[in-house]
Amino acid sequence: MENIKIAIRDFNLHFGSKHVLKNINIEFPANKIVALIGPSGCGKSTLLRSLNRMHDLSPDARLEGDILLEDLHLLHPRTDVVAIRRKVGMVFQRPNPFPKSIYENVAYGLRLTGTHNEADIRARVESCLQQSYIWEETKDELQKSALQLSGGQQQRLCIARAIAVEPEVILLDEPCSALDPISTAKIEDLLLELKNRYTIVIVTHNMQQAQRVADFTAFMYLGEVIEYGPTDQIFNHPQQMLTRNYVEGHFG
């Protein structure tokens, strides 16, 4: 694989006494989309949330091993978690725009870092909304509350919000599971466009979606990565029995 963006080495995660992720060794290439698939409870969302240290919020999570973002050790206690999260953006399962205006949602991350020039912010908001294919729908009502948008629009707004801080990686945790097929298609188009600029990791339970958007796919089961390779290989020529059973729909 060329140009590794994220490398996970001997990674283990425990919640209290539960061993949730076991000996994960996997690499994500830059400017590609990687899909994490597997039955519910296999640990795919947990792995995703490890990449921007979201588990810092759970007091009983214990992370061991190494996750490298290029040469930055993500799990090292001295590594600034705030800096990590600016490099690794995240879009959640359910759209969660802030109860603020559309404009302020996108501007949120910029204001945090002290960008105070309103013209700069405005330009950035516009470009992010355009990149997220939602500019046309919202350009005349940027001051409207984001909560008044439809679910699909909210999710695209959340993507715009995430890319506004110029991350290097975008994590998406089943971003379409709460959306209708038309909104889903729009988001998938958007992802294919965005991968030119960002490295994308997406958790999905929708195997068609993985096949449509992902360059590489990892199949996880019971906290382990069972098989990882080009999407075409995972779905059409799986090497492992478990993978074949899963992609053919025998369980999960």
Binding site: D80, V82, A83, L112, T113, G114
Partner: peptide, 8 residues
Amino acid sequence: MMNRRTFW
């Protein structure tokens, strides 16, 4: 920059 935010 980052230091100030961490400080607060």
